[in-house]
Write a protein that binds this DNA or RNA. Structure first.
Lengths: 196, 196
DNA sequence: CCTACCGATCGGTAGG
DNA sequence: CCTACCGATCGGTAGG
């Protein structure tokens, strides 16, 4: 009798994927074992394979879930009728929000993607490169219009993206300031650094 | 007959440590095997253990070599008779220079240190925390003196440090702009973002 | 979802 | 510096 996927299968798989994201963040992809994951989910290691195909598939799911959200947001921002500075600010706030609300997955997609296998590895790299180019194009446009000071746009993108991904340190630390304050501070420093 | 350490032993060990830094950067600490390292050095895996005690010792050496250089520089900067902005700019240029001249080791110390074992793990964490606090104190002083705009100093440190460690993307990419240009651009964006 | 188990690979040691 | 090899652990499969 053919197996039919029910809603419960989907949910179970999502639970496993979410647990995997946390585990990969805690230990790193390579150091995280399927036995670790099984303990976290509350089953034997072999049982995981009724819901997933492989360890690498879990990493794949986490990475592309995040990447797809970013691409979607980029599309929305590009279509919006706003200034370049406003576009950059919107993207920055989105990145910061994702980092705070969706910490485990975003962290893993940012730091562990290199353990993907081809063709997903090249695919991910391409998506990443494309995203950064589109981000740089927005900055470039701002420079043309005189909104943003004359700087190397790809460098600015690098700075912005990496500065935000650094929130993980804040996330793990004492969290002396609130998420809103953190966001405000980051946007202030970075946007003022760009502004003409 | 007791074995006496010759200069050649030291050199051999340095060769292995350097190769390890490159390998750890390429594959990540956990994914890098001692057999990979042996191939890189040109010996059998077992032979490595005539020069080193363990894999973790290699990671330890890389991480603390880098950390010690930073602590030294911080001390020099603190003792210098300069403005806060100048101190920050000096530290930024130092970080960028280290990232460019000493890429493999700096990258590994920044991304793979969590695979250290205690007591070295706690030790490294403490050094890191202390370094950031001293960096934040410089910014704080600049705020008091009115050189720097009123922002959360620890957040600014996070941004600066992570933005610079993002140079690895530039390092691996096409390198369209030169190292000097990159440095100039980074300093411009970040320092202007801080300046009152 | 579990028991039982496989082949591969790992860090490291013994002994020369 | 090498050959030979060890115990542990890994991702994953067979079969129920």
């Amino acid at each position: 009798m053919a197996r039919i996927k029910t809603n419960k299968d989907v949910t179970r798989r999502e639970v496993i994927t979410k647990a995997a994201a946390t585990l990969f963040r805690e230990k790193g992809y390579k150091a995280a074992s399927m036995r670790d994951l099984a303990v976290k989910v509350g089953v034997e290691a072999a049982s995981l394979y009724n819901h997933i195909r492989s360890k690498t598939e879990l990493l794949h799911d986490v990475c592309f879930n995040v990447a797809n959200r970013y691409v979607e947001k980029m599309h929305a921002v590009e279509s919006s009728n706003t200034t370049s500075i406003e576009k950059i600010e919107t993207l920055m706030r989105f990145h910061i929000g994702q980092m705070i609300d969706n910490y485990e997955e975003v962290y893993v997609s940012d730091r562990e993607w290199r353990h993907l296998n081809d063709p997903y590895l090249s695919n991910y790299r391409n998506q990443r490169r494309s995203y950064r180019k589109r981000f740089a194009a927005i900055i470039e446009e701002g420079i043309q219009k005189g909104e943003i000071k004359k700087i190397d746009a790809p460098t600015a993108v690098l700075i912005i993206l990496h500065a935000i991904s650094g929130i993980d340190s804040w996330h793990r630390s004492q969290q002396k300031i609130s998420a809103e304050e953190l966001e405000k501070n980051m946007v202030t420093i970075m946007v003022d650094g760009l502004r003409q």
